[in-house]
Simulated scan of single mutants.
Amino acid sequence: MSTAQLRLASTVMLVRDAPAGFEVLLLRRNKDLAFAGGAHVFPGGSVDVNDGDPTLTARCSGLDPSEADARLGVTDALRFYVAALREAYEEAGILLVVDDLRRPASDLELQLRVARRALVEGERSFAQIVQHLDLVLDVGALIYVAHWITPEGAPRRFDTRFFLARVPPQQLATPDRSEIVGEVWITPERALDAYYQGQFELVLPTVKNLEFLASFGDVETLLDAARALTSVPPIQPRFYRRPDGSVAVALPDAPEYRQASATVLASGEALPTRPATGP
Results as ranks from 00 to 15, higher is better:
residue 1 M to Q: 12
residue 3 T to Q: 15
residue 17 D to R: 15
residue 19 P to T: 04
residue 24 V to G: 06
residue 26 L to M: 08
residue 36 A to L: 15
residue 41 V to R: 13
residue 41 V to N: 02
residue 44 G to Q: 09
residue 46 S to V: 14
residue 59 R to P: 02
residue 67 E to G: 10
residue 69 D to Q: 05
residue 72 L to I: 05
residue 73 G to T: 10
residue 83 A to V: 03
residue 88 A to T: 12
residue 88 A to V: 11
residue 89 Y to G: 05
residue 95 L to P: 08
residue 97 V to P: 01
residue 98 V to E: 14
residue 101 L to G: 02
residue 104 P to W: 07
residue 116 R to I: 08
residue 116 R to Y: 07
residue 123 E to D: 13
residue 127 A to W: 07
residue 128 Q to G: 15
residue 131 Q to L: 13
residue 132 H to I: 00
residue 132 H to R: 12
residue 138 D to V: 06
residue 141 A to G: 11
residue 144 Y to H: 15
residue 154 A to K: 00
residue 156 R to G: 02
residue 157 R to Y: 09
residue 161 R to F: 04
residue 163 F to G: 05
residue 168 P to F: 09
residue 173 A to L: 07
residue 174 T to F: 11
residue 175 P to F: 05
residue 181 V to T: 12
residue 185 W to L: 13
residue 189 E to N: 03
residue 193 D to N: 11
residue 196 Y to M: 05
residue 198 G to W: 00
residue 199 Q to L: 13
residue 200 F to C: 04
residue 214 A to S: 11
residue 222 L to S: 01
residue 225 A to F: 06
residue 228 A to I: 00
residue 228 A to T: 01
residue 231 S to T: 10
residue 234 P to D: 03
residue 235 I to N: 01
residue 236 Q to H: 00
residue 236 Q to V: 03
residue 251 L to Y: 04
residue 255 P to S: 07
residue 267 S to Y: 03
residue 269 E to M: 00
residue 272 P to M: 09
